[in-house]
Design a protein around this nucleic acid. Structure first.
Length: 429
DNA sequence: GTTTATGATTAGGA
DNA sequence: TCCTAATCATAAAC
């Protein structure tokens, strides 16, 4: 049996069968459940209800057969029927002490999970968590929709069962009322007694409902845990995400320690979590350091790519500079997010590793790219043998013992102050 | 089926 | 708390 079946059975296992009838009139166990379609359970409920009816009908018939004249006997039979109903109630009444905090907790949970109450479009908090954890990539969206589908299934089963219980409760109440009405022919029955009986039945059915709620909660918990497990499952990031991360890594190779803000930005761009970004960088740093040669090609690739971007950015900046000639300085008065001074941008670029870099939006993006560009330009000066030592992207800030230096090149130095849309390169060390 | 790549987890250190 | 390093577990490539 797979987990799903088990889960659904957990829910499907809630029915009247769990309540053996007190007073010596125990109900037979229900038939097996036919999957999660609810038909089997519907049948069970129907059967059970029918049996209840039959039992009480028998009591009534017996009573009638024993002649209405024999009030003593009739009373006895009716007491049997009623004691059956009362028997039903004894435990229920004991179990419940409204307002039941447990019931409230169950109700709250079912409401929060979107099982009870109005259907939530986006699913429950768990669904959101699952979606967040999964990153919302297409693959994970499938899982997300899978989660929602299963939650909907649980919801449907819950509502179907609830409806059936209510119906059964009403039917049984009506039946008992009829019984009492019959009995009223032989003895006076006060409205209070009828009321009491109805209350007893309702309480009993409420306790059954509580079990349904409990099992529904269990099913939801199982579903949730399944999705938390799914989060554990390793799943490759999307190509785009890996590209973004690699771009950042190689363009900040001198100090590949993104700040919290940068991580958040990357996480958002890659549709993954911040901790996944941290994991990725942790793994990348280690693996890069361990085998620089292996990553050489990749480094070159990203270097070239970034260089092209940088060249475009520079070209655009130059053009911008020409357009915004000294006769039309970019004053802040326009209210737009302008470069403080296009000329400064180049000054800043020239002092790429300087401490005083004040980034503009364009300059910020350009800065790291120019860093890369410089590597590319340097590369043209010599053959790279693919070994770590003289490689294009040899981590110039790697210590002799293999660690990235942090003292001389804090990321705040190598990184510009960046505008929105770009990531920071800051160290968290 | 085996190997490789890669995301996640864990222990220990600063 | 964040890092490294080792390791695990699994997806992907062969």
């Amino acid at each position: 049996m797979d987990e799903q079946s088990r889960m659904l059975q957990t829910l499907a296992g809630v029915n009247l069968a769990g309540h053996s009838v007190q007073g010596g009139m125990a109900l037979p166990p229900p038939h097996g459940h036919e999957g999660a379609d609810g038909d089997g359970r519907k049948q069970d409920i129907g059967d059970i209800l029918h049996q209840i009816m039959t039992i009480t009908d028998q009591s009534l018939d017996e009573a009638q057969a024993n002649s209405l004249a024999n009030t003593r006997n009739t009373d006895c039979v009716f007491s049997c029927s009623l004691s059956f109903v009362q028997g039903l109630s004894i435990r229920g009444a004991q179990e419940e002490d409204p307002p039941d905090p447990q019931l409230m907790r169950l109700d709250n949970m079912l409401l929060a999970e979107g099982v009870s109450g109005p259907e939530k479009g986006g699913g429950s908090a768990a669904a959101a968590a699952a979606a967040a954890a999964s990153g919302g990539s297409s693959d994970n969206s499938i899982e997300h929709s899978d989660y929602r589908a299963k939650l909907t299934q649980i919801r449907q089963i819950y509502h179907t069962e609830l409806e059936k219980y209510e119906q059964a409760c009403n039917e049984f109440t009506t039946h008992v009322m009829n019984l009492l009405r019959e009995q009223s022919r032989t003895r006076p029955i006060s409205p209070k007694e009828i009321e009491r009986m109805v209350g007893i039945i309702h309480r009993k059915f409420s306790s059954i409902q509580m079990q349904l709620k409990q099992s529904t909660c269990e099913a939801v918990m199982i579903l949730r845990s399944r999705f938390l497990d799914a989060r554990r499952k390793r799943r490759n990031f999307s190509k785009q995400a890996t590209e973004i991360l690699n771009e950042y890594f190689y363009s900040h190779l001198s100090n590949p320690y993104p700040s919290e803000e940068a991580k958040e930005e990357l996480a958002k761009k890659c549709s993954i979590t911040v901790s996944q970004v941290s994991n990725w960088f942790g793994n990348k740093r280690i693996r890069y350091k361990k085998n620089i040669g292996k990553f050489q090609e990749e480094a070159n690739l990203y270097a070239a790519k970034t260089a092209v971007t940088a060249a475009h950015a520079v070209a655009a900046a130059v053009q911008n500079n020409q357009t915004n000639s000294p006769t039309t300085p970019n004053s802040g008065s326009s209210g737009s997010f302008n470069l403080p001074n296009s000329g400064d941008m180049f000054m800043n670029m020239q002092s790429l590793n300087g401490d005083s870099y004040q980034g503009s939006q364009v300059g910020a993006n350009v800065q790291s790219q120019v860093d890369t560009l410089r590597h590319v330009i340097n590369q043209t000066g010599g053959y790279n043998d693919g070994l770590g030592g003289n490689s294009l992207y040899s981590p110039h800030n790697l210590n002799a013992n293999g660690g990235w230096q942090d003292a001389t090149t804090p990321s705040s130095v190598t990184s510009p102050t960046e505008g929105p849309g770009s990531v920071h390169s800051d160290t968290s060390n």
